[in-house]
């Protein structure tokens, strides 16, 4: 992975992030450096990740969500990349499924404007502080959020 060609190894990177933000935890199953952040610390952690000289994650590669319907939570996934150091980091964040609201990172990385709109469109995650949270792919009057596991649609065909 990219974290190996960078100057910092996976363990070292995770350790540095946890030193910066002690309430983060290591994520166990991941193919790269990965940490789990609590919702309350998400905004400050992201700013530190971008501004800290040794990390300087200046690119938000992707942002998406996973619906863990049995456990009643959404898992938000942020894939970060540093063009200066060439290392990757995955930040995940668990949010309550009944009231999924997280702080926006669009002030940290402007590309998150679009990515958060997409996740809002398909998963219905609310982003606190987002300037223009509208649907982006589906029509404005669409009911429901299609990538949630409990979404139903009269047009969805199911093989018998």
């Amino acid at each position: 992975m990219g974290s190996k060609i960078g100057t910092m190894g996976t363990e070292e990177l995770e350790q540095l992030v946890i030193t910066l933000e002690p309430r983060c935890r290591k994520r166990q199953s991941a193919d790269r450096a990965a940490v789990i952040a609590p919702v309350a610390e998400l905004d400050s952690l992201m700013r530190k990740l971008r501004d800290e000289h040794l990390l300087s994650f200046d690119l938000l590669l992707d942002h998406t969500a996973i619906d863990h319907i049995q456990e009643g939570r959404f898992e938000l996934v942020y894939l970060l990349y540093s063009t200066r150091h060439g290392h990757h980091l995955m930040v995940t964040c668990d949010v309550d499924r009944a009231n999924p609201v997280v702080p926006t990172v669009s002030e940290v990385w402007p590309i998150a404007h679009w990515q958060e709109r997409e996740v809002f469109d398909l998963f219905g995650i609310g982003y606190d502080g987002h300037l223009d949270l509208r649907r982006v792919f589906l029509e404005d009057d669409w009911k429901g959020y299609p990538l949630r596991k409990d979404y139903t649609d009269p047009d969805m065909l199911e093989p018998a």
Binding site: P146, Y151, D153, D155, M156, L157
Partner: peptide, 10 residues
């Protein structure tokens, strides 16, 4: 996309 699709016109 015949099955399980919420957006594709068949």
């Amino acid at each position: 996309f015949m099955y399980y699709s919420y957006s594709i016109v068949r």
